[in-house]
Design a protein around this nucleic acid. Sequence first.
DNA 1: TAGATTGTTAATCGATTAACAATC
DNA 2: TAGATTGTTAATCGATTAACAATC
Lengths: 219, 219
Amino acid sequence: MTKQLKISEAVVRRLPIYLRYLNELSLSEVQTVSSQDLGEKLDLNPAQIRKDLAYFGDFGRKGVGYNVSYLIEKIRQILKLDRPLHVALVGTGNLGRALCNYNTYLKDNMKIIAVFDADPSKVGLVINHLTVQPTSELKRTVAERDISVGIITVPAAEAQNVADQFIGAGIRGILNFAPTVLRAPGHVRIHQTDFTADLLSLAYYLNSEDEEMARGTDG
Amino acid sequence: MTKQLKISEAVVRRLPIYLRYLNELSLSEVQTVSSQDLGEKLDLNPAQIRKDLAYFGDFGRKGVGYNVSYLIEKIRQILKLDRPLHVALVGTGNLGRALCNYNTYLKDNMKIIAVFDADPSKVGLVINHLTVQPTSELKRTVAERDISVGIITVPAAEAQNVADQFIGAGIRGILNFAPTVLRAPGHVRIHQTDFTADLLSLAYYLNSEDEEMARGTDG
DNA sequence: TAGATTGTTAATCGATTAACAATC
DNA sequence: TAGATTGTTAATCGATTAACAATC
């Protein structure tokens, strides 16, 4: 029986992680997996995994565990990856090109099907079978090709402008790689990927051997 | 007076965000900023910002706000970005190349100074003034050039192997872009950048116009 | 002095984990 | 039946937010 409470973001963000490992298991022809197994592999608490999944239904069998292919099917339904999802990307710098080539990765019905750049010298280039279009065509293409997600890989200064174009074109979600906070109306979901922040915050945790010794002595 | 409680990860992850905007303000020659201003710009609660900063010291002035350049200096000290920090990257695919070119971005004393690839056909290529070295040279280079952070941009199947080499070479922190959970001893800090998960989890939140109307009618 | 804004405490909210009855 | 493992409740832990005295 599927419950419909409000699901926390933390839970939703773990679902793709589960899905990824389940797909691996499926390839290895593993039939069944326990929350214990999943927890060890993904470095998560088994109780948390059971709780996460139980928000959406009773997918497991007591004493047995979870059927791998059934759970894959269910998580794909929850994430709405059981239907095709069209993505557009703006900004064909190194990062944008990298993401276009990641398309193979996203076999989960999610596919970049259009690529844009404001720079005329980039227009017409072919990246992984996609021809770069001028950003001026964004609105029309999004409507015509039923694109619901936009990826932004332009410089920070242009990101809000591109976001506004996406929003005006009726996009539903944006994945932003530019290091800037985007404004969007409530019905447009924004996910931020901020690896500069990931990298800089890493510095905080770097202890030299010396410091570790010092701590050992002190405390 | 600097307090030394245990600082939560959530707090540390916001510091680079503050730093980024403060640097912008500094460029615009803004002298002073309030938690109110910061909160509006960064879409965060002002009380949270004040609390975050207060963990590390009394950086503000009541009735006035925070001095921009003083706060920049302090946050850089906290994040240990007041000293040079050498980074190595393994995997010169599209993403790896993209990150090498982001070097300009990371003016904060953090710099990619060595690049490796296991593929002999990549060795010797020059990416943003860096010559690609064979991965076999990783350990020696890390030691010789005082490299403390490793970035992994290889396929998932090879990521743990590369991580182990970094760890064996005495690295202190790893930023992993491969979609796999890495194992590491406690003294090595792992940050995971998982934009595939960011993208897939986005799908969960995409409501079509129709669904929104339905919800409007139902509830 | 009056207005603004910090630093901090207390209240709230949310997420994780432990424990265990149910049951395969 | 005995062993394993789920789903779920209760307990814990942690993070965010509101409120306000202190003070510039």
